[in-house]
Computed example of a mutant assay.
Amino acid sequence: MSFSTRSIAALALAALFVFPLTMDAQKKMPKKYKNAPDQTIVIVTNSPAQSFDEAEYPHLQFYYTPQEMPDFLARLHNVKPIPVKDGITGMVVDKDGVIAYIRGFNNALAKNNDNMDEMNWTILTVADKKGIIGGSKPMDDYLKDYVIKGKSAKRDDDKTYIPGEEPTFKGWDKGKVEGMMLPDFTLITKDGNELAIKEILNGQPAFIVFTNISEDGKEVSPMLWHVENVLYNYFPPRR
Rank of each mutant, 00 (worst) to 15 (best):
S7A: 14
S7Y: 04
S7L: 12
I8A: 14
I8F: 13
A9P: 02
A9F: 05
A9H: 02
A9L: 07
A10P: 01
A10N: 02
L11H: 04
A12R: 12
A12F: 09
L13C: 14
L13V: 15
V18M: 09
V18Q: 02
V18E: 02
P20E: 08
T22Y: 13
T22N: 00
M23C: 14
M23V: 15
D24T: 14
D24C: 06
Q26D: 14
Q26L: 15
K27C: 00
K27Y: 05
K27S: 03
M29R: 15
K31Q: 15
Y33K: 09
Y33R: 10
K34L: 01
A36W: 12
A36Q: 11
A36E: 05
P37L: 01
P37T: 02
D38E: 15
Q39P: 00
Q39D: 01
I41K: 10
I41S: 11
T45F: 12
T45E: 02
T45H: 06
N46D: 14
N46I: 08
P48M: 04
P48V: 08
P48A: 00
A49K: 09
A49D: 00
A49T: 04
A49F: 00
S51M: 10
F52K: 05
D53C: 05
A55P: 08
A55V: 06
E56G: 15
Y57C: 02
Y57E: 07
Y57H: 11
P58T: 09
P58W: 01
H59K: 12
L60A: 07
L60E: 07
Q61H: 11
F62A: 05
F62L: 03
Y63L: 10
Y64P: 03
T65K: 11
P70M: 08
P70H: 12
F72G: 04
F72M: 05
L73D: 10
A74K: 15
R75D: 01
L76M: 12
V79W: 11
P81N: 13
P81I: 10
I82N: 03
V84W: 02
D86V: 03
D86F: 08
D86Q: 12
D86L: 11
D86Y: 11
I88N: 09
I88G: 02
G90K: 09
G90A: 13
V92F: 07
V93M: 11
V93A: 13
V93E: 10
D96E: 15
D96L: 08
D96W: 04
D96P: 04
G97P: 07
G97Y: 12
V98I: 15
A100I: 01
A100V: 03
A100E: 08
I102Q: 04
F105E: 10
F105H: 14
N106S: 07
N107M: 00
A108M: 01
L109A: 12
L109M: 14
A110V: 00
K111Q: 13
N112Q: 09
N112P: 00
N113Y: 09
N113D: 11
D114T: 12
